[in-house]
């Protein structure tokens, strides 16, 4: 792989998009955080309103732009803007939310072209404390819709886990491109 490519990190609010990019980026991430005034919906002090941005260099020398979307649906106009030209997507699922499988369907539906072309990896977080749905359940939902994607458990606070996700996506892309 050569030159510069973009990988998009998306998922619900609090799923770990900003954390993932901060864990892997070699530059101080560019963030667009605002005070979260909707603490009833999600008890988190700040929320991303436009994008997160970081950079990561591959061993072969290519540069990866790490771009994170805002999570809330009211910012979905940004999703398409940020996805333009992306090589692939890391979809982060928060397993502590009320219906993680519905979250999966929502985001896969929005980024359907990426999912159907195999340009997506699904990462399920907080599985240590919330074991259901199981990883296989996510794969089953995708399979029922005729989609085959890697589904992995990940703690995106750990750089190695985020690196694993990026490598999984790049491996997946090598097979599909």
């Amino acid at each position: 792989m050569s030159s510069e490519h973009k990988i998009l990190f998306t998922g619900t609010m609090g799923a770990g998009k900003t954390t993932s990019i901060a864990a892997l980026s070699e530059i101080p991430p560019v963030v667009t955080e605002a005070l979260n005034s909707d603490r009833l919906a999600y008890d988190k002090a700040t929320t991303t309103v436009a994008l997160d941005y970081g950079e990561f260099t591959l061993e072969e020398g290519g540069k990866i732009q790490l771009v994170g979307t805002p999570g809330q649906m009211r910012f979905d106009f940004m999703w398409g803007v940020l996805a333009r030209g992306a090589l692939g997507i890391v979809l982060l699922i928060d397993n502590s939310r009320p219906d993680p499988l519905a979250d999966l369907r929502t985001y896969v539906g929005h980024f359907e072209a990426f999912a159907r072309n195999g340009r997506m990896v699904v990462a399920v977080g907080r599985t240590e404390t919330h074991m259901r749905p199981a990883i296989d359940d996510f794969g089953d939902v995708l399979a029922n819709d005729g989609i085959l994607l890697p589904v992995l458990s990940a703690d995106v606070r750990r750089r190695d886990d985020v690196l694993m996700l990026v490598n999984a996506l790049l491996s997946q892309l090598e097979m599909t491109l």
Binding site: T32, E33, A34, L35, N36, S37, D38, T47, T48, V49, A50, P70, Q72, R74, F75, F77, M78
Partner: peptide
């Protein structure tokens, strides 16, 4: 963080969406 608090409109516009866009642009 993108919530409409109050607005005065002359023309009908999608105010919730514009509020989210305003915060994203400001961010």
């Amino acid at each position: 963080d993108g919530f409409e608090l109050v607005s005065v409109t002359v023309t009908e516009l999608p105010l919730s969406q514009l509020s989210a866009m305003a915060s994203a642009m400001q961010g």
